[in-house]
């Protein structure tokens, strides 16, 4: 077996999802048969980071035209690498960037990517979700070239043995011509920060009538700040003018789908539910154990918000340090 794992850098370090992908690769081959690949215009630091793990070797795919990322550049470079290395499998973390180039890269070898894999069983048989998670499908590689696999974030817990001896590091310089790169990516930027944009917020703390008075709002504001979350509300809060209308979540307000929606003192009326049901993780804090909000919540705390919220703020602050 010869497995290539393509690692990605995020904020100066190899990303967690990359380590997870490398861990997944262990289901395909032992550590020494796995080659870690770092790619970019400058790869010295990530290569060193990768070399701290017990990979068979680390390859630095380096070329000035590989920064910033372009699909054209990555495909050209990695295709050359694959031709040179002749791997049996190529494993990626299933990130937005990988989704942008890996299908084309696989195609260039006459293969199809098995994407967003959540499980790898003997065979190897790869499991991925179908029908928005309602079904699982198991796949086998049937082509006669390398098998391309991308691994879902969080599906594997990153656990890699550290290198006992120095891991060999090789450098691979692909031949890329500037004319091959047809797209011109701009600098990344944040979504409009000045206006309230609940629709694209990733974390939301939402407050309802359980807060009783406008004077108590700083309590939840603090929790929101600790979480780095936007503050939202149910209709009565906005009706009273305690928070502006554009912070109202629900059928006559905003529809939101953050990763975390924390509902504080909100009962869960249907008009509110329709605005936040698409959230990835819903947490409810309510003193009424029968409040309908608990029906849709993933986690619930039954209790007085005036006790729970300050405690939670503290716990979040502690966890973030």
């Amino acid at each position: 077996m010869r497995v290539l794992v393509i690692l990605e850098e995020r904020g100066g370090h190899i990303s967690r999802t990359s380590w997870e992908a490398a861990t997944a690769a262990l289901r395909l081959a032992p550590m020494q048969e796995i080659t870690a690949v770092v790619i970019g215009a400058q790869t010295e630091l990530p290569a060193a980071e990768a070399a701290a793990k017990a990979f068979g070797k680390v390859i630095r795919v380096e070329h000035p035209l590989l920064a910033p990322y372009t699909s054209d550049g990555y495909c050209a470079a990695l295709h050359q690498l694959i031709q040179q290395e002749g791997p049996t499998q190529v494993v990626f973390p299933h990130t937005y960037q990988v989704r942008d180039y890996a299908p084309a890269l696989a195609c260039r070898s006459g293969q199809a990517l098995i994407g967003d894999v959540i499980e790898i069983a003997d065979g190897p048989v790869f499991t991925r979700q179908l029908m928005q998670g309602r079904l699982n499908g198991s796949y086998r590689h049937a082509g006669n070239g390398p098998c391309f696999v991308s691994v879902q974030a969080g599906a594997f817990r990153a656990e890699l043995p550290d290198a006992a001896a120095a891991t060999p590091i090789e450098t691979f310089t692909p031949a890329i011509d500037a004319a091959q790169i047809r797209t011109r990516p701009g600098e990344p930027f944040r979504g409009s920060a000045q206006t309230v944009d609940l629709g694209s917020a990733q974390w939301i703390v939402s407050v309802g009538r359980g807060i009783r008075e406008a004077e108590n709002l700083p309590l939840v504001q603090e929790l929101a700040t600790a979480l780095g979350a936007e503050l939202a509300a149910s209709r009565p809060i906005c009706d009273n003018g305690w928070l502006p209308m554009e912070r109202q979540v629900g059928s006559s307000g905003q529809s939101v789908a953050p990763r975390l929606y924390l509902a504080v003192g909100i009962s869960g009326a249907i008009q509110h539910l329709v605005g936040m049901k698409g959230s990835q993780c819903i947490v409810a804090i309510n003193k009424d154990p029968d409040a309908p909000i608990f029906e849709v919540a993933d986690y619930g705390i039954v209790g007085d918000l005036f006790e729970v919220v300050p405690a939670l703020t503290e716990a979040v602050k502690a966890a973030k340090q």
Binding site: G110, Q111, A112, I114, V125, Q129, L130, G133, R134, L135, N136, G137, S138, Y139, R140, H141, A142, G143, G145, F294, E295, A297, D298, Y299, G300
Partner: peptide
């Protein structure tokens, strides 16, 4: 095909609070 679907199954987990 270069990739063959072998089987489909029901996932185990069910959402609960």
């Amino acid at each position: 095909p270069a990739v063959a679907l072998e089987a489909i199954t029901l996932p185990k987990k069910q959402k609960s609070t």
